[in-house]
Design a protein around this nucleic acid. Structure first.
Length: 434
RNA sequence: GCGGUCGUAGCUCAGUGGUAGAGCGCCGCGUUGUGGUCGCGGAUGUCGCGGGUUCAAACCCCGUCGAUCGCCCCA
């Protein structure tokens, strides 16, 4: 034993799982990727770091990004101080698209499953290191509207593949809220929408109070609130909207778009799609369709995915107009929350399907050969690591959840046997054709 | 950055001023080639860290670090 032990502590906001839990997460990742690829999206990976200037080109995220530097760096050496860990995958994607513009085929459809980092204070369902599953399509000059329906559908299908509690997609369109508030004569639209975004949390009264603190009179505040309260299962949101008596060209454009999207998502299970004009989204690069995904039974944990359309995300990287739409599935939040809620059934502690017993050291070569034979036949096989008592070897299989234990011959001429650990029965078997 | 709560065995926690505990887990034994259950035995702690009060501190006080929940913001 060492003189001093550094007692390990969890690092706040940086989750890690036991093998049996990680195995489930890996299955999730496989399923999500399969859904993405089934629509023809291809994978890319970008570096964990980007230049700070790139990250700050869009959005207002200055204080939550982690910058990097070398521990041994000279004080005068700031060659790496310009780098920071990415806080999402959309900005790196935009940079990537601009950088590889000549070699990409448009519309460029890609997915990206990677970690992201945000230096916020962690709390329930909020991490500083988390995995995002992003899927975007980006095109030159303009992007057909039907992608605004395709991406939410892909996202929903990905959730469906995971065997999790019911998910609801809430959709809106930036142009509607923007146009509406402009029509009302609201000046500070960003602050007002940010307040409306809190409707679920602080309720109608809270929103009214917050808005009057911003200097809006009560009538105006109520009108602002009215739009955020519109939630419908189909395109009837438009009727409710028109009854508010405000109109603008921008708003009408948004209404038409959202109607189109809702109609093109009608094939999804009833109750899983909502037009919700209270959906705002924090990032300011969104210009049209916006959406958030929630667990129906656990809305309080926040969105488990989100996304939207942007007119020109890569505009600051290249002199081309590149509109796109993307959605991001917040894997870590979803996984962690469902794990805590007991919805995740742990897998076996190891992928081993067969444990080969080591009768004694003198038979190791023979047992290893048996293990190899079984492996070539496609099984995950472990040879026990020492010639411990059979009792101990079986107990190891039991603890690790290994379903089969293989008994190679203990004496010359003896037959192989295999034991089914769940049934308890043990039969003669041939490693060549078991 | 701000506020609340909590730090005792690997884990979950009990212990409110007088010898450091339980359950689970871990290791061993219950003989010869067979797991789970059961029985018996065993190991493991600077009671987060530093200071103060006291004859005496896991316990009271101050500070600090960490975790956690919430606010801001967000997946």
């Amino acid at each position: 034993m060492a003189d001093k032990i550094h007692k390990p502590r969890p690092i706040s906001g940086f989750p890690e799982w036991l093998p049996e839990i990680r195995a489930v997460e890996m299955q999730w990742l496989d399923k999500i990727r399969a859904v993405f690829e089934s629509y023809g999206y291809g994978s890319i990976e970008t570096p964990s770091v980007e230049e700070i200037d790139v990250l700050l080109a869009k959005g207002e995220t200055d204080k939550e990004i982690y910058t990097i530097n070398r521990l041994q760096a000279e004080e005068s050496d700031d060659s790496e101080a310009r780098l920071a860990l990415h806080f999402d995958l959309t900005v790196p994607f935009a940079r990537y698209t601009a950088q590889h513009f000549n070699n990409l085929t448009f519309p460029f459809k890609r997915y990206q499953v990677q970690k992201s980092w945000r230096g916020e204070r962690p709390q329930k369902g909020r991490f500083r290191e988390f995995t995002q599953c992003d899927i975007d399509v980006i095109n030159v000059d303009n992007l057909p509207l039907h992608f605004d329906a395709e991406l939410p559908a892909v996202m929903f299908e990905a959730y469906q593949a995971l065997d999790i509690p019911p998910v609801e997609l809430r959709l809106s369109n930036r142009k509607i809220v923007q146009g509406y508030l402009q029509g009302l004569g609201v000046e500070d639209i960003t602050t007002v929408t940010r307040t409306l975004d809190k409707l679920d949390k602080i309720r109608a009264d809270g929103v009214i109070n917050a808005l009057s603190e911003l200097g809006l009179d009560e009538t105006l505040a109520k009108k602002c609130l009215a739009i955020a309260e519109i939630k419908t299962d189909d395109d009837s949101f438009a009727d409710k909207l028109s009854s508010l008596g405000v109109s603008s060209p921008l708003m009408e454009e948004g209404i038409a778009e959202l109607k189109f999207v809702m109609q093109n998502l009608a094939h999804l299970p009833k109750g899983s799609i909502k037009a919700d004009l209270g959906i705002i989204r924090g990032f300011d690069y969104y210009t049209g369709t916006i959406l958030e995904a929630y667990l129906k039974d656990m809305p309080k944990i926040g969105a488990i995915g989100s996304g939207g359309r942007y007119d020109d995300l890569a505009g600051s990287f290249i002199n081309q107009k590149l509109p796109g739409i993307g959605v991001s599935l917040g894997l870590t939040r979803l996984f962690a929350v469902l794990l805590e809620a007991g919805h995740i059934t742990p897998a076996a502690k190891a992928p081993t399907q067969v444990l080969v017993i080591l009768p004694d050291e003198s038979r190791r070569a023979e047992a290893a050969a048996t293990a190899r034979t079984l492996r070539t036949r496609g099984y995950n096989v472990e040879l026990f690591h020492s010639d411990a008592k059979v009792k101990k070897q079986l107990s190891y299989a039991e603890k690790k959840g290994i379903p089969f234990v293989w008994f190679p011959p203990f004496k010359d001429g003896q037959a192989h046997e295999v034991k089914d650990m769940t049934q308890g029965e043990q039969l003669k078997a041939d490693p060549e054709n078991w």
